[in-house]
Design a protein around this nucleic acid. Structure first.
Lengths: 110, 110
DNA sequence: CTTGTGTTTAGTTATATGCGCATATATGGA
DNA sequence: TCCATATATGCGCATATAACTAAACACAAG
C-alpha cells in the first residue's frame, strides 16, 4: 500500500484529533461511555471531575465528532459517535504494553 | 472482548502517547520516515524546520519509543520503531475523511 | 412568574510546550 | 591540536489550554 504524504492542512487536522485524545480526563469520559450513552451528571459521578470541567471536555469531544449529544428534557446524554476510538485505544494500549514489557526485560536480564 | 477500565496511571501513559502525535511537525517527521531511515539533516530539508527544532522533535519521538536512533560517525539516523503508527494514522485519516465527507453532504443536499 | 435542577459559559490563573536564537557536544580530518 | 560538520541543548518568549469559581442559561413543576 502506497502512502502519499498528507498536506499541511490534513496534518493539522490529524494532529488536532490526537490532541483531543491527549487528556486523561477525556479518555476517562470515553471509557465511561464504552458501554452506552450516559447523561452529564452520571459522567461527573463516574469520573470524579467537577461538572463545569466535564461539560467542557464533553464539548471538546463532541466538536471533534467523537461524541454525539442528545437532549432529553433537562438532561443531556452523550454517546460515542466514532467507533474508531475503540481500535485506536486498543492499538495504543497494545503498543504501550509491548514497550513496557520490553523495558521490564532489560532490567531482568540486562 | 471485554474492556476493563484503565487505571489512572495507564490513562496518563495513553494520553501522553497521543500528545506526542498531536504536533503537525512530528507527524511530518513520521511521514518522512515511512519509507525508511534518514539522518537529521535530510529530515530538516524534507520538513522545512530549523535544525534545533527538528532535533527536539526527534528526541520527543524517540523517548516515546516511536523512533529508534542509530549513530554512524557524525550523523544520526532515525527510523520508525513502532509499526502501530501506520495503523494509527490510517484509522484517524479514515475517520476524518468520513467526517468531512458527511459534512460536505450537509451542504450538498441540506 | 418563581423556584429548583441540570447543564453550559465567562473570566481568571497556572501550567505546558512549540519555536527561535545562541551555544554546547561529538566526531572526523588536516 | 585546531577546525569543520552534524547534532543536541539551555534559555526566553509567545501561545495554548486545563481547572477553578461564579454566573448564566434551559427547562420542568407548582
Amino acid at each position: 500500500m502506497k502512502v502519499r504524504p498528507l498536506s499541511d492542512e490534513a496534518l493539522e487536522l490529524v494532529s488536532r484529533r490526537f490532541a483531543v485524545l491527549a487528556e486523561p480526563m477525556r479518555l476517562r469520559l470515553l471509557q465511561a461511555l464504552f458501554d452506552g450513552e450516559k447523561n452529564v451528571n452520571t459522567l461527573v459521578g463516574l469520573t470524579g471531575g467537577t461538572q463545569a470541567n466535564i461539560s467542557r471536555h464533553l464539548q471538546t469531544l463532541t466538536e471533534a465528532h467523537l461524541l454525539k449529544r442528545r437532549k432529553e428534557g433537562l438532561q443531556v446524554f452523550y454517546a460515542i459517535a466514532d467507533p474508531t476510538i475503540f481500535r485506536l485505544c486498543e492499538l495504543v494500549c497494545g503498543s504501550l504494553e509491548k514497550v513496557h514489557a520490553a523495558r521490564a526485560e532489560v532490567f531482568r536480564s540486562g
